[in-house]
Simulated assay, not measured.
Amino acid sequence: MCGRFSQSQTREDYLSYLADEAERNIPYDPEPIARYNVAPGTRVLLLSERDEKLHVDPVHWGYAPAWWDKTPLINARVETAATSRMFKPLWQHGRAIVFADGWFEWKKDGEKKQPYFIHRADGKPIFMAAIGSTPFERGDDAEGFLIVTTAADKGLIDIHDRRPLVLSPEAARTWMRQDIGGTILEDLVVQGAVAADKFAWYQVTRAVGNVRKQGSDLINPI
């Protein structure tokens, strides 16, 4: 699953992997985002395509349609999202990308849980597939978005049995296109996914469990 991640670099650090400036409708911002502990229930910079250009909008992380009377969901399984009653409309019309440095996962260590930070071994940003309720630019907390997850494999399964669906930059760009669907998307989530052996992970401070903590030390190895 994915319940916490880091989004700390500048917008340009992430966007430069996806599209040149002519393909974006995003103001230049040289300031680092500096969110080292992004949690559900907060607004997150979400990348999507409108009118064939990329846009960034602050969108609520969590999804609960009007008929849902339980806690908002934060993840959607890739295996069922395209066909489920709840997620099918989002899969068809609300595909987006969450850019990040990496994500946190907790593993039981005796009586406590030890957090790990998982990132690309080559240091490049990660692009997590997301689906959400459009229009993303409306700016309220109605519904929101979810991060798409897939089954963990290889060494990652030692940390958790689920992980975010992380796409290559090329696949991430295609994922956001609004003129594709069906088998193209089915093939994309398989062929465009970043393989488990491209990731590395290490233990980090348990302070990351406190959502008020936001310092860069949260992603330092211990």
Rank of each mutant, 00 (worst) to 15 (best):
L45W: 12
A129W: 09
Y28T: 10
M128I: 07
R173W: 08
A81Q: 04
A195I: 09
H55V: 05
V211N: 05
D29E: 14
K213Y: 03
D141H: 11
S216L: 02
L185T: 05
R35S: 03
A171E: 06
V98K: 06
N75S: 07
E105P: 02
L46T: 07
A142V: 15
V78E: 14
N210F: 04
D187V: 06
G215Q: 02
R35Y: 07
L167W: 08
N75M: 06
A66K: 15
S84Y: 03
T183A: 15
K198A: 15
Y63A: 02
W103N: 04
H93S: 15
M176I: 06
E186C: 09
D153V: 05
G102D: 02
L146V: 15
F136P: 00
T150F: 06
V189I: 15
A76M: 05
T42L: 03
M176F: 10
S16Q: 15
A34R: 05
L45D: 12
I222V: 09
P40C: 01
P27T: 07
L18F: 12
A193F: 07
E31T: 12
A193H: 10
P40V: 00
L18K: 06
Q191A: 13
V189M: 12
E137S: 14
L46D: 04
S133N: 13
I26C: 11
Q191T: 14
R50N: 07
D122C: 09
N75R: 08
D51F: 07
A82G: 08
F127P: 00
Y202Q: 00
T42V: 03
W67S: 10
V204D: 01
R43L: 10
D57M: 05
I157N: 09
R206M: 01
N210D: 08
L54R: 02
V194L: 14
E79D: 14
K124A: 13
E170Y: 11
D141Y: 11
A142C: 13
L165C: 06
S6I: 01
E105Q: 10
A193I: 01
P169T: 01
V204T: 03
Y36W: 13
Q92N: 13
I74D: 00
F145W: 02
G41C: 03
Q191R: 15
E21V: 12
Y28Q: 11
C2F: 08
T174L: 14
I157D: 10
E79Y: 08
F104S: 01
A130R: 03
W67N: 08
E21T: 12
M176V: 03
K213R: 09
H55D: 04
D153A: 07
I184P: 01
M86W: 04
T71E: 12
K53F: 02
G144D: 06
H55F: 11
W67Q: 09
V211T: 08
G102W: 02
D29S: 12
L73V: 09
V56N: 01
T80Y: 10
R85E: 13
V208P: 06
V38I: 07
I147F: 06
Q92T: 13
E105I: 00
T134V: 14
Y28M: 08
